[in-house]
Design a protein around this nucleic acid. Structure first.
Lengths: 252, 252
DNA sequence: GAGTGGTCTAGACCACCCT
DNA sequence: GGGTGGTCTAGACCACTCA
């Protein structure tokens, strides 16, 4: 006997939202919540658009519009003839692209975690992560490498308990890129980020690592990485010698 | 007698494109070409969607989809109850926002043009503007001011003859923001830009203007501003003392 | 009030992927 | 062949803007 999905009635979820906003947006929001609760996975498709349309009691066109919106927001991925899937993070994206330093290569630098600890958020970290001052956070310090030579020092703060599994995991198992790990280990997909650049001076501790003298100018990049919801889940501060530093941005 | 737009038949433009690509994309491309040829202006609306649908002999839904695509690509702007317009550069937008320097204000700095001349493009300018080395270009040098104090020095190169009117115009008539002038005086709408940041050292000439000592670190921002077509119409190099410099980017 | 874009529906047909 | 998403159409009604 063929498996048959019961025609669940989801009008209630749809109607829980402000009726003044368009129907396709309400449906989109209802679906978004299910996505964010982890109801779907990237490996098996969501119900077909027709079935979803029935469950939410909207026309196919309206459901298609809602799904298209979620797809263009990067939450879903649709494949003709196959199905609609939860989107996995795209490691090729602009989030990783525009760090160029010295040599004219776009290669992702290597990395080495030199410290990991659970600490308490100071004022700046708490402000960035939106948690209380003194809340427990996971702190990582990494060196980014070109070949075997470090040229960037990164401090990364992650809220707990969201990232608790990363506090336990053997350091050797940390990948070069962290965002895919955030997704696979902690179910947290980075959707957007903002960065702020300033120029400071190398302190005595970092100068040898960065290959410059104490007091020489360093570029400081502070990044806040966010979920689709806007919640900040990573605060990262990267420091590198200003000489040879190059940062590129595309503005639209 | 009320003005009536003749129902021009534009099926030919639409059918000039590869019939294997979807109709709404072909229509979009046909419209895009008209936009790029300057047929429309930001101050008067395009024909109504229904009229366009008739001209291209497609359904309203298909035309709506084409227009929505051009709108989300940033080429057009649609206002309910009003009309569809060519999008003007958004002076509020990211193009102008993220220069923060010292004081925590987002106010647009004042400016004073201290030099204007017609010169020949050196290698870097020619490369940026996509013209020949030695081609005539218009060069402007500006000081950007907070209050009455300069804190940024800008060199701007513009291709000729596109910007010929700016070579004649009295300097007093130059506005604080140049992009609206590019649009109104030269019919050139800036649609996108890319910037590249590096750190250098103040030379003897600029140090007094920037309020720092010779050899102190300065931030250098090189910007290429482009039309919708991608053609670069401005190359700009801005220098400012690194101390107190802050540059912010939003990444999606 | 006339005209614009925005929403929503209903249904036909096509292209693609699987087994 | 059966099911998926993609395209396209046709038309009703609503919300907004402007004169």
């Amino acid at each position: 006997m063929p498996r048959r999905t019961a025609a669940v009635d989801r009008r209630a979820e749809r109607d829980a939202l402000d009726p003044r906003i368009p129907l396709h947006e309400r449906v989109q929001e209802a679906l978004r919540r299910r996505v964010e609760e982890g109801e779907f996975s990237p490996s098996s498709p969501l119900p077909a658009e027709g079935e979803l349309a029935g469950a939410y009691d909207v026309s196919l066109g309206t459901m298609r519009r809602a799904l298209a919106g979620l797809a263009s927001a990067g939450l879903l991925e649709r494949r003709q003839g196959d199905g609609t899937y939860l989107r996995r993070a795209r490691m090729d994206g602009s989030l990783f692209r525009f760090f160029r330093h010295g040599a004219d290569t776009d290669a992702v630098p290597g990395s080495r975690i030199v410290d990991r600890s659970v600490t308490r958020a100071d004022e700046q970290v708490a402000d960035a992560l939106g948690c209380a001052v003194g809340a427990e956070v996971l702190h990582l310090r990494r060196h980014r490498l070109r070949g075997d030579v470090a040229f960037l020092v990164e401090d990364i703060w992650l809220p707990l308990p969201r990232f608790a599994t990363l506090a336990e995991r053997p350091l050797q198992e940390f990948a070069n890129l962290l965002y895919p790990m955030y997704e696979s280990e902690c179910g947290s997909v980075v959707a957007s980020a903002s960065e702020e650049l300033t120029v400071g001076a190398a302190d005595a501790a970092e100068a040898p690592v960065l290959g410059c003298a104490e007091g020489e100018p360093v570029v400081v990049v502070e990044r806040r990485a966010r979920l689709h919801t806007g919640e900040v889940i990573e605060f990262r501060r990267t420091r590198g010698a200003a000489a040879g530093f190059r940062y590129r941005v595309e503005i639209r």
